[in-house]
Design a protein around this nucleic acid. Structure first.
Lengths: 150, 150
DNA sequence: CACCGGTCGTTTGACATCGAACTATCGTCG
DNA sequence: CGACGATAGTTCGATGTCAAACGACCGGTG
């Protein structure tokens, strides 16, 4: 019964939750961003971090993982390549694909940086208890899945 | 005691929560964006909506409310003025300030649009029960406040 | 009245971001 | 083998975004 009949109070509740959700995300992200080296953007970090934890990927996969457009990734990856943190290699067996991987410098760079960022995030979330974090995971997951369906 | 000793499991929990939080926010926002007229951006909508619910404001206040830079607002507001949805007026008593207000067209535009967006958001959040929405508000608020403090 | 620090908005340069048009490549089907 | 549809990446144009430098204006102080 709760989710079928959509009274106005449900709508207000949803709006309120959405606003607070966005604020929380933006606040945390902006504070995490302060911890990044000044010349590294959030998306660039996300690319490095993804490659670090998942290994080499092609641009399309990277775009999907990060919920960005392929056109966007082209630019971000180009900028990272310019400063020598990653390298691009065409797949010999299918020239359409380009595999992105960390350069040695990129690997050691992100290996050093990641723990700092993780600690920062943990600090941000330290206002929540463990069970609150778990509950937040559960709720966010439900919302995220909802969107993935379609 | 729970928040002082930061074991690695706390860190993993926080990272997990952060990722899911961002995904949820991005997913919902991107789906809400689909509902907007194609020529209206999220920030432009946010500006109109804020003016609609709070009345005329100067750019600095608007920037603060929306957590954006003033330079950013200059552009967004200029674009909205170009299409005639808002108007800018210098304050006679202090020429540094510029008051932004909805034009008649802007007012009726947002008055028609807002209910649609609100319904869409409510629909996105309908995967959560009322008590889950309330809990999400509580948790997000704690995170947001944490960030506002400093 | 003239300077001066502080406040508001604009400009600038670099990057992000999207969608849509475009290029190159692949697989397949006739 | 050759045309065609699908797929990966790039390019383009418009907008957003920030930080930092800048210009205009205010209020006070000497």
């Amino acid at each position: 019964m709760p989710t079928h009949h959509q009274g106005p109070e449900h709508e207000i509740l949803a709006l309120d939750a959405y606003i607070k959700l966005m604020r929380a995300t933006e606040s945390v992200t902006s504070r995490v961003h302060e911890t990044l080296p000044t010349d590294l953007t959030v998306t660039q970090f996300a690319v490095l971090e993804t490659l670090f934890h998942l290994g080499p990927l092609c641009q399309g996969q990277l775009a999907t993982k990060l919920l960005k457009s392929t056109g966007n990734l082209t630019l971000v990856v180009a900028n990272l390549e310019k400063v020598g943190l990653i390298k691009r290699e065409r797949q010999p067996h299918d020239l359409r694909f380009i595999t992105i991987s960390l350069s040695p410098r990129g690997r050691s760079f992100i290996a050093k940086l990641f723990p700092k960022i993780a600690a920062r995030i943990a600090d941000e979330f330290s206002v929540l208890t463990s069970s609150e974090k778990i509950e937040l995971c559960r709720l966010a997951k439900k919302l995220g899945l909802r969107a993935t369906v379609k």
